[in-house]
Amino acid sequence: MRKASRLSKEILLVLMALLFLSPVYIIFVNSFKTRKELYENTLALPEDFNFRFYTEAMEQMDFFNAFINSMIVTVVSVAFIVILSSMTAWMLARTGGKVSTIIFMTLIATMLIPFQTIMMPLMQLVTNITQNLGIPLYNTLGGLIFMNIGFNAALSVFLYHGFVKSIPLSLEEAATIDGASKFGVFWRIIFPILTPITATVMILNVILIWNDFLLPSLTLIDKELRTIPLSVFYFFGEFTIEWNLAMAGLTLTIIPVVIFYIIAQKYIIKGIGEGAVK
């Protein structure tokens, strides 16, 4: 009796989760159906798994190009964020005094600013810099990466700062006596210790940057620079909703996320938990 009730509970729990994810299932099965099949029964499995809509969606979205742009922007931004914010956080945490406090507090305070409050003046500034100083920040992947670093610096420094404070000073002091430079101390001793928090910082930033739409939409103008969210947006605008095609496109964009989730699942849930609680 008890075993049976336990088993039914197990099954109910998984069924509930599957029901919760049913919109993803619906998008997936309908991406293979013809228009007629689609309207006959939205929930049924397709008659055959034909990938014609996928090839068409890939072409119209310029999917591979968008995927590579998204990869470049995400990987390079996150690498810079990790390097620069860990260095900054360590220095700020290990150097007491007013300057460090003011810098740290300013960083934290700016986390209150929503993106909509600075988007217009930022775009003005960035176009000005591009036109008048000749530094190509506007309409380039490099410029987007530059802005991603700026926007995500505060949260990342904050997370690193908290972690650095929990590391005992004695480790670095021993190394300093041995004659290592600050640079050596940081990269050889401190940075390896930071690994758990680096994982959290990376996860949080990958999710934010990969899915970001508004900032790239304001700064990337050329078609060949589009990231995945941008190409989905224009895809939906240009082809007034041929749904089977659209759903093939949506499935394509979800695949990289699912793969990332399967690989890094443990770190993602832990990272999100830590990021939210702090």
Partner: peptide, 28 residues
């Protein structure tokens, strides 16, 4: 020197992307 080397690169980017636009924004 070390202090500047470690903190200034990030702070410059941060100032250009967040601080200056925020201040210009109030002005606008």
């Amino acid at each position: 020197g070390w202090y500047l080397l470690f903190t200034v690169p990030l702070l410059i980017i941060f100032t250009i992307v967040v601080i200056i636009p925020f201040l210009i924004g109030i002005y606008y």
